Amino acid sequence: MADMAVQSTGMEAAAGPYDRAKALSAFKLGDVAFYWTTRLCAISVLLILGGIIISLIAGAWPAIREFGFSFLFTQRWAPANDPPILGALGPIYGTLVTSVIAMVIAIPVGIGIAIFLTELCPQWARRPIGLAVELLAGIPSIIYGMWGFFVLGPFMANHLQPFLIRAFDGVPVLGSIFAGPPSYLSLFNAALILAIMVLPFITAISVDVFKTVPPVLKEAAYGIGCTTWEVVRKVVIPYTRVGVIGGIMLALGRALGETMAVTFIIGNAFRITGSVFSPGTTISAAIASEFAESDGLHQSGLILLGLLLFVLTFLVLSAARLMLMRLERKAGN
């Protein structure tokens, strides 16, 4: 037995250097392969992004050459004219107005739901409410559009819009913003749909970041006599503001680019009015409603609208990233 053990040990010692070198070589090869695989994945994202930008610029070039900067400041949209008259001011206005109204509604509601789920909600009710919020995110946008067209639009036109028109009649500024007549298809209805659609993004991300607050911080605040409102305002929100703002910006990006739901209920009117109860259009809705029947300069103008939406979204997300970097730097200091 001793001779066999010595013989086995000798064989392992003889084979040891060869096996170790082979294993190290295999590990090095795997590490290099993993490095280049991940690097190619990262580069592919840049290539795809660059390809999208180049294709948009190439498709929009005839419209850029024809209209120049006047495309941004012209309200009229008449592709049937000879020559066509195309202006992006109406869609840009509708995109910004609907997104701003949607965020004004969705931000306090979404953060309020997140605060309730993490701080106030009974344990037995957290899962059902959380699932309901997640289901809102999973509903296809076309379903939101159909619901808005058949249910929300008539309800708003028959009940809420007449009330708001009467309530703000004669009030400076607000009287013109909420001016009539009521309409099934309007900027305000589209903004409500967008608010419902982006609500799950704000709520889900806010819930996740609120859960990262160390319990000891909240317990210390409660220990010195703070109320729940004071704990949320002075502990939870300051500790998680970077994550909350990130969720809000993600929701804003979704609101800026939403297509089908908005197309159903906004009215697709290329004009600017002071009232949010009037029909309008957004960049994405204009492209969706007209692209299939377009050609020539008309199609190039729609592609230029897509390029403008790309630039607008890029600027918004870049501004959000810079703001988050400033907040992180201040928190570090």
Rank of each mutant, 00 (worst) to 15 (best):
Ala63Asp: 07
Ala204Val: 12
Leu297Asn: 00
Arg20Ala: 12
Gly68Gln: 08
Leu187Lys: 13
Ala80Phe: 12
Gly148Val: 04
Gly253Val: 03
Ala179Ser: 11
Ser176Val: 11
Thr38Phe: 08
Thr118Ala: 01
Phe150His: 08
Ser55Thr: 08
Lys211Leu: 10
Glu134Pro: 02
Cys41Val: 10
Ile52Leu: 11
Ala88Gly: 04
Gly148Phe: 07
Ser300Leu: 11
Gly87His: 03
Gly296Trp: 12
Ile105Asp: 00
Ile266Thr: 02
Leu304Met: 15
Val316Tyr: 05
Gly145Ile: 04
Leu308Asp: 07
Tyr222Cys: 01
Gln75Ile: 11
Ala42Pro: 00
Val100Trp: 05
Leu324Pro: 01
Thr37Asn: 13
Met249Leu: 12
Gly246Leu: 01
Ala80Thr: 14
Gly257Ala: 03
Thr38Val: 13
Phe168Met: 05
Phe314Arg: 03
Ile43Thr: 09
Pro154Trp: 14
Leu131Gly: 06
Ala80Cys: 06
Tyr184Pro: 09
Ala331Val: 02
Gly87Tyr: 04
Lys234Gly: 13
Leu194Met: 15
Phe314Pro: 03
Ala167Thr: 10
Thr228Ser: 14
Ser300Thr: 09
Ser284Glu: 06
Gly332Trp: 07
Arg126Thr: 14
Glu290Asp: 15
Glu230Met: 08
Ser318Gly: 03
Ile129Arg: 01
Phe178Met: 01
Ser186Ala: 13
Lys330Arg: 15
Val97Phe: 00
Asn158Ser: 13
Trp147Thr: 08
Ile143Arg: 02
Gly153Trp: 11
Phe291Arg: 00
Thr212Phe: 00
Glu66Asp: 11
Ala13Trp: 12
Cys41Ala: 13
Gly51Lys: 03
Phe163Leu: 09
Gln7Lys: 13
Pro279Trp: 11
Phe73Val: 13
His298Leu: 01
Ala114Gly: 04
Met4Asn: 09
Leu312Met: 15
Ala23Lys: 13
Val151Glu: 00
Gly332Leu: 14
Arg127Ser: 12
Gly90Tyr: 01
Leu324Glu: 11
Gly94Cys: 07
Ser186Asp: 06
Gln161Trp: 00
Pro154Phe: 12
Asp31Leu: 10
Phe67Met: 03
Arg271Trp: 07
Gly87Cys: 01
Ala179Glu: 07
Asp295Gln: 09
Ser284Asp: 02
Ala220Trp: 05
Val209Cys: 00
Ala319Leu: 14
Val216Arg: 08
Ala261Ser: 12
Ile202Gln: 07
Ala78Gly: 02
Ile142His: 03
Gly306Leu: 04
Ser289Ile: 04
Leu309Asp: 09
Leu199Tyr: 01
Ile245Met: 15
Lys22Ile: 02
Ser99Tyr: 00
Met323Tyr: 12
Gly110Thr: 13
Tyr144Lys: 05
Gln123Tyr: 09
Val232Lys: 01
Ser99Val: 02
Ile107His: 06
Phe310Leu: 14
Arg166Ala: 15
Lys218Ser: 04
Ala331Gly: 12
Val242Ser: 15
Ile272Lys: 00
Asn158Cys: 06
Gly274Lys: 00
Trp77His: 02
Val232Phe: 01
Ile193Lys: 05
Phe277Ala: 10
Ser294His: 04
Ala13Ser: 10
Thr74Asn: 00
Gly170Tyr: 10
Ala191Lys: 04
Lys211Ser: 10
Ile272Thr: 02
Asp82Thr: 12
Ile129Glu: 01
Val242Glu: 07
Gly306Ala: 08
Leu40Lys: 10
Ile237Gln: 02
Leu297Met: 14
